[in-house]
Design a protein around this nucleic acid. Structure first.
Lengths: 258, 258
DNA sequence: AATCTTGTGATTGGATGCAATCCCGTCTAC
DNA sequence: GTAGACGGGATTGCATCCAATCACAAGATT
């Protein structure tokens, strides 16, 4: 490239600041990497190399490391000092913990949001629930499910709580995906009924019922997940049978302790 | 490569690594700064300068920035791009949000911990509750209150949930402190009674009652806080009456949006 | 033959330096 | 007297560079 300039110094790869704009690089990396993990691009246990991520997002390793700290706090990845970063692997117990937390927290968020749910929102919820029945694409199903729940909560003028709920959703997304892949028609029908009952309760402005239905909905999902322990990291085997290839099954705790 | 090391270069400034040890600096900074904020050393609204923190903890600005990211995720501080970091200021609404979340989440954690509470723990809880009545030092009171609750939860073999509860405690600590300063004898007596009832319920292994008592305990504290809105940042005045001296009241949202 | 030791390559952690941006006191205009 | 503009100084954001640590493979010893 580039003989036009006599001085071959200054490599600069043509553009001086290709994407330094956009305000702040670490935010961009955190957002993008979070999306990629939630989308399943990096499955649980994947090793995340700083330089690879840096190159992918057109940044240096410094903002990447800041983003990794954020994602660790999100519970999405696990950092081990001087060793590296891995996408978090949840044990069944940890996943149930997150779901039990959701059972308590999401009904509250729904209550806080219920007041400002409009008729248009209710119609939108109905069509989302319908679309979930119609599709048989797993990714589409997951997207619709997430959209359904977040649409219910959209009216809440909260920051802390909606943030928390989104984190809880993100950290369990891989397991919802794995489970959805093996879901049967019967369970799918139940999910649909529960969603429909939720919209009905909301339409009648019966917040107490809506809370209870939502709690039961999450609890049933948790129970169904618990019936498939093979989806999770095994707690019994401390020494991994797989001698750690590119993905050391458990380099540190699957969830950072602090 | 090279010769047999005839050259005694290597300045090494006497001590090779004065405090590089200790594993990792950003963890040390995050821990120390969190303690300092929770201890009230930096009140809400304080500006946090990277270089000052770096010097305080004997590190450079890079690990400090990583620590700031972690504390932002904790909800303890608020980062604004290209502007700086401030200790988070909660509005009354945000503080109530956190308390409502605690009302739902802490009873669950108590339930999960209840199974492994020993008699010694119960005695310890009793003495902590007694000590709270005895003292009239605010900091001591806060420390004991925190110790009481965390001791109840100590037996829970959870990581996500206990982490979450600790974060919720930390982010509301300044307001508990401000409130405790103006607490009357009557309210203090109620707190003591609730703590005593909690221990009693736990001693009788009545988890359902314990959950309800704990929920009511937190709710009553929230109500008392709400009766003192002057403790919080004001939502009505968008332009701060105080023209921002060292502490710009609201540079961005008091809680990071993502 | 199995285990311990040693050394090399790869990866992470942290310090320094520089460009971009913002804060804030001061000045100007109405 | 109040609101807006402006420029110096301070502070943040990021890239590069170097040291420290770890993983892993080859060799030596019992």
């Amino acid at each position: 490239m580039s003989e036009s300039t006599a001085a071959p110094l200054v490599p600069t790869t043509s553009i001086p600041t290709p994407q330094t704009r956009d305000g702040n690089a670490s935010l961009r990396v955190a957002r993008g990497l979070r999306e990629a993990i939630v989308a399943g691009e990096y499955p649980p246990g994947s090793r995340l190399r700083q330089e690879e991520i840096a190159e992918r997002f057109g940044a240096s390793r410094v903002p990447v490391r800041e983003a990794l700290k954020v994602l660790e706090a999100d519970g999405l990845i696990t950092l081990v000092a001087n060793a590296g970063a891995w996408v978090s692997q949840l044990t069944l117990a940890e996943c149930e913990e997150v779901y039990q937390t959701r059972e308590r927290v999401e009904p509250l968020l729904l209550r806080l949001a219920a007041g400002s749910i409009t008729d248009e929102t209710l119609d939108e919820l109905d069509s989302l629930a319908e679309a979930m029945v119609a599709t048989d694409d797993v990714e589409e199903f997951l997207r619709l499910d997430r959209a359904f729940h977040l649409a219910m909560y959209a009216g809440a003028r909260t920051l802390v709580l909606s943030d928390l709920v989104e984190r809880l959703w993100n950290s369990t997304q891989p397991y919802r995906r794995a489970y959805t892949l093996m879901i049967d028609a019967h369970s799918q029908r139940i999910v649909h009924d529960e969603h429909h009952m939720l919209v009905t309760a909301l339409r009648e402005a019966d917040v107490d019922s809506a809370e209870r239905i939502l709690e039961g909905h999450i609890r049933r999902t948790r129970r169904r997940l618990a019936a498939h322990p093979q989806l999770f990291a095994d707690t019994t085997t401390d020494r991994p049978t797989t001698p750690r290839q590119t993905t050391p099954r458990q380099k540190g705790p699957s969830w950072p302790s602090q």
